[in-house]
Design a protein around this nucleic acid. Structure first.
Lengths: 272, 272
DNA sequence: CCAAAAGTGTTGTGCGTACACCCATGG
DNA sequence: CCATGGGTGTACGCACAACACTTTTGG
């Protein structure tokens, strides 16, 4: 049963451009792996065949709406369509560093963003028509969705997520609609379990600000009274600071900053 | 600010064996990405520098304990330590296919497993001392933890997860302890939200079987009466089938098979 | 004085935990 | 007849949604 450690040179005929037709092939290839490193290992001696990139689903809340940073593609494939910022992973680079690099190139943000979280790996063999590209999508947020500066950055734009795919909204390239949708869903989930909402508002913030961030991301309205109680009942979520803020009309609101805790006990449940 | 599209050839001096020292370097590399494909793209024309593998955290329940499939390493690095099964991703292969291939090679399972889920990407630049290896860990389960057959498969073994790191238990290679821990935590979480528990028991099963699977994975005891009500109150989780089963002593139990639904509404909450 | 937003108080309902109790089998 | 596990019934308590009410500002 065990092979002798040799394997057929699968790069014999030089890599052809694309092999969409080979999708089903791997499903029946259930023979024992001819591991070149013996039990428990795998051969990593030769050059890899698969390119690994990082794509960033970068979100913010802007005037009551959830927005995502997209970049317009200038050339084939998919010219005129919009993509999330991406970068090829460098040999000694961590995913979060590559993610920062991708966003810096598109959004003019000069400091690395703090909260980054892995989203999912997008691995469909034909997701990029040029060659095999596996993408690790990561989720990131900012409190200040600044419009990208000019020059090479001008192609980036913040789009309301609820306009994607509609008449006035962007059309996404490749499988990036899947990436954005996964990011939206993960962000909505993380708002329940973590204090990521405090990264969506600028300090200091009122509990009304925080509530409106939740409402924008979840697309629903929340009871101000109950929301307030839940936030204050969760230790480490927010900390009150000095002063009050008067917006327009209405009673001045207490000001808060981010608390120490990252996970929320108890969570802020999302209405179903 | 924008470069002209050229980038330094970062593979100039041939790749040295390992570069642990370069960990901090990428953190300050915040210059604009020199994209070789213009806005919204990245260069994928040349061979990648990063190898992508799939590591499988493969779980089962055996005699009341959660077990995981591990493979003993035979050679450097980390000989004598135990690793989860892994495989290098082939150019036209989906992650789930590579995961199946890795497990088939180690566990003698002849059919592809059904439930596979992405766990996380392990991307630390020095996680493998030989070369840069990025690992996508996936979670899989089986109802029948068969001992691997002989020959090249003999190095695989099912280990109780609660013995890992203890005196009689295995010591894990590389960062595979992180992979197993991530798998355990994800499995515990998915038991709340999905019907993955039905993949941990053989059909037909009793609600006692299902409860004991939860108890093994969660490491706690559950109220049989309340567990029963919760399972039956979740549509699509299980479906009753004909017959009853008498184990040893006690009243015969109704038999069930997997239901149609994959997500659980309402969930089976884990006690905190 | 009115509108609007922040902040506090109160109550009814629903749901889950805990436990009592009955059922059906083997020894 | 007892032990054991399966299956049903039920009451207590707590958490939360809903809504009333007060506070403090601008117009």
């Amino acid at each position: 049963m065990a092979k002798d450690g040799k394997k057929p040179d699968r790069r014999a005929g030089e890599r052809t451009k694309t092999q969409k037709s080979a999708k089903k092939r791997a499903k029946v290839a259930l023979e024992v792996e001819a591991a070149s490193d013996g039990p428990g290992g795998y051969g990593t001696d030769d050059r890899p065949d698969v390119a690994l990139v990082v794509d960033v689903a970068y979100f913010a809340v802007d005037r009551g709406a959830l927005v995502v940073l997209l970049v317009e593609r200038g050339r084939e494939p998919d010219p005129g369509r919009w993509a999330v910022p991406g970068a090829v992973l460098e040999p000694d680079e961590a995913l979060t560093d590559a993610a920062t690099r991708a966003v810096v190139a598109r959004a003019g943000i000069l400091e690395p963003f703090t909260r980054v979280e892995q989203l999912a790996v997008f691995d469909a063999p034909d997701r990029d028509p040029r060659t095999r590209v596996v993408s690790t999508a990561v989720l990131a947020v900012t409190s200040t969705p600044v419009p990208p500066a000019g020059g090479a950055l001008a192609s980036g734009r913040w789009w309301r997520v609820d306009t994607i795919g509609t008449d006035g909204g962007p059309t996404l390239a490749f499988d990036h609609l899947d990436i954005v949708e996964a990011g939206v869903e993960r962000l909505r989930s993380r708002l329940e379990q973590t204090d990521v909402a405090t990264a969506l508002v600028e300090e200091p913030f009122t509990l009304g600000d925080l509530r409106r961030a939740y409402e924008a991301a979840w697309g629903i309205e929340l009871e101000p009274a109950n929301f307030r109680r839940k936030v204050l009942a969760t230790p480490g979520f927010v900390a009150q600071t000095a002063g009050k803020r008067i917006v327009g009309t209405g009673r001045p609101a207490d000001l808060y900053v981010r608390g120490a805790g990252a996970v929320l006990h108890p969570p802020i449940p999302r209405p179903r």
